[in-house]
Write a protein that binds this DNA or RNA. Structure first.
Length: 270
DNA sequence: CCGAACCTGTGT
DNA sequence: ACACAGGTTCGG
């Protein structure tokens, strides 16, 4: 479910309420979702939060003593900020209690993960070390984008590859490709200079719009206060198969590209 | 590159 | 009953 804009929205919601707060306990039932083990999290007791930050689709909570709690929501994960004695939420799998507040990790499909690691090994343990550039950062520039598009792979596969650009998922890949007027299966190498320029701007544009609208809520996504985002109202193609293209009226087509359901306009996208 | 696996719910 | 879902990893 959550891609960069959704994870960014969650981080914005929890950061101000978590900064400086002291850790009490982590409890949960899904054993393989907590790495390395529930037991280890006892070492966090009494330590306070120094910072909360997003990296790709990961959330890092930095504690004193160089400990880091990392979360990944995968497909259906939610993180909701509750009071300590609020009742368990539906599909609540793990809870992280702080003095005065409690983070509830809810996840219907149990794909989400929680890690505890030392700062110096955090990236390798969690897989963050394999991530590519942040698309909203200054390392994501035209020069870099040209380099990764110089490839025989298709555009959608390239945009979804977290080791190239970190944070784009199925929604924003389809939306970015529509905005740039490019087919998802187009080969990277086949793009002209102006195609590359357009796709570069489109990717940033759709991600920014997602963040401004506090994320896309198709069914699962909720922010840290449990509220849905608004971006689903502004999607051009994702989830709109067989509906008319807002630009030309042609019925939008759904196919499978790079192993994922993909919606595009065969008229507007070449 | 592709399909399968990891899980559960929902829609056809 | 079957297909499909916002992600990632693994094996072929």
């Amino acid at each position: 479910m959550p891609e960069l804009p959704e994870v960014e929205t969650v981080v914005k919601g929890i950061k101000p309420r978590l900064m400086g707060r002291h850790f009490l306990a982590l409890r949960g039932k899904v054993k393989n979702a907590v790495i390395p083990s529930f037991e280890i999290f006892k070492t966090l007791k009494g330590l306070h939060v120094l910072n909360v930050a997003r990296r790709g689709k990961f959330i890092n909570i930095f504690f004193e003593n160089d400990s880091v709690v990392t979360l990944h929501l995968r497909m259906s994960g939610r993180i909701i900020m509750c009071d300590l004695n609020d009742p368990a939420l539906p599909f609540e799998r793990t809870r992280i209690d702080f003095e005065g507040k409690s983070l509830r990790f809810c996840d219907v499909r149990k794909f989400g993960r929680v890690w505890l690691s030392r700062l110096d090994e955090c990236e390798s343990v969690t897989g963050i070390s394999r991530l590519g550039v942040e698309p909203m950062g200054k390392d994501f520039n035209l020069r870099f984008f040209r380099k990764i598009l110089d490839s025989q792979r298709g555009l959608k596969a390239l945009l979804l590859d977290q080791s190239l650009i970190a944070g784009i998922g199925n929604i924003y890949a389809d939306e970015g490709l529509f905005d740039a007027g490019l087919r998802p299966e187009r080969i990277g190498k086949s793009l002209s200079a102006s195609d590359i320029q357009r796709l570069f701007e489109s990717v940033k544009k759709v991600l920014n719009q997602g963040i401004r609208n506090r994320g896309t809520s198709i069914s699962d996504f909720r922010d840290a206060q449990g509220k849905p985002g608004k971006n689903q109202k502004f999607l051009a193609v994702y989830g709109r198969a067989k509906k008319p293209c807002g630009r030309c009226g042609e019925l939008l087509k759904k196919t499978v590209v790079a192993g994922r359901g993909t919606v595009f306009c065969k008229n507007c996208q070449t």
